[in-house]
Design a protein around this nucleic acid. Sequence first.
DNA 1: TTGTATATTTGCAACGATTACATTTTTTAT
DNA 2: ATAAAAAATGTAATCGTTGCAAATATACAA
Lengths: 153, 153
Amino acid sequence: MTTKADTYLLENNVNPSYQRVKIMEYLLRKKNHPNIDMIFNNLKKEMPKLSKTTIYNTLKLFIKRNLVSPLTIEDNMLRYDADTKIHGHFKCINCGIITDINLDLKNMNRDELPGYTIFEHHVNFKGRCNKKSCNKKSFNKNKNGNTNWEKSA
Amino acid sequence: MTTKADTYLLENNVNPSYQRVKIMEYLLRKKNHPNIDMIFNNLKKEMPKLSKTTIYNTLKLFIKRNLVSPLTIEDNMLRYDADTKIHGHFKCINCGIITDINLDLKNMNRDELPGYTIFEHHVNFKGRCNKKSCNKKSFNKNKNGNTNWEKSA
DNA sequence: TTGTATATTTGCAACGATTACATTTTTTAT
DNA sequence: ATAAAAAATGTAATCGTTGCAAATATACAA
C-alpha cells in the first residue's frame, strides 16, 4: 500500500521504511507540534516494538531533509513540526495548545542586520488563547499553588 | 560598598546577597547572553566556593522578578539576558555570538490572534553575521566533517 | 534461491543540563 | 549573644537526548 506519506518521503530521498512512514503520517495527520513522547505513546499502540531511539533518529533525518522543523517553545523539550514554511507559534499557557501564526519578517532583516545571512527564523509567543476556559478568573493551579502561567517559586 | 547592581536588586525586592549581586553585575557588564557555565566559570575565579546550584536558584529568582529573561536559542541549554525589553536575537552559527535585534511585532497580534493575550515574545534568528571571518569560503568543520551550520548526519 | 552487504531498528548505557533536597553558612532580629 | 530566617552549598536524582553494539530487515549479486 502506498500512502501519501510514503510518496512524500520517496520524493525527498528518504527510504520509506515502515517506522518512518508511520511517524511522518502521525505528523501530517495530527499537526499538533508533538514532542517525542507524544509520538511514542500514540504509535506504540499499533507498533508495540517501537523504540524511542528510532523516533529520535527518524526526526533527525527528517530535519536534515527539511521535512520537519524542530520547535523549542518549551524550555526542556523539543517539539516537531511537519510544516517547514516560515511561520510563528503561539502557546497557550493554560490549555497548552500550540497555534500556528503567519509571519512576514522580510523587511526587518535589512535595517537590523546589515550583511547578515539568515538561515532560520524562530518566532514564539506565550499567553492565553481566546477559548473561554482559558480566560476565566480561576486559573488552573499546579502543585505549587501557582497558576500554570506564573513562574514557580 | 553599594554598587549599581546592588541598588537595582533592592529596587526590585531582591535581597542583594553577595552572590546575587555578583551574578547580576556579570549579566549587566557582559551582556553576552551567557549560559550557566559561562557565568560559573567566570565568577568562580573570584568566588572559589560558588556553587552552580546558587546560580540556578539566583537566575530563577531573577526571572520571577522580571530582571532576567531566559533565552532558548540553543536547543539544549538555557541562556540568560538581563535586558527584559522586548527584542529579538540573532546567533551566528560560525562565531556563536548572539546579537540583539530591535523588534516591533505589535501589529501582527491583532490580525493573527484575535482575543489572545500575549505575555512573552521570543524571536530568534540563526545565520552568519557580517564579520569577514564568518563569511569566508572555508567554514569551520566539526568532528563529523560538517560545517557548524549543517545538521550532523 | 541463497548468501552477503547494507540499511534500519532496537535496547540499553551513558551523558549533560537542570532540579531536589538535606546540610552548612550567613544574615537578621531580638 | 542567641535564636530564627534566609541563602548558599554539595551531592544525588531526574529527565531529555545521544552513543553504541547487537538484532532485524532489506537489497542485490551470484
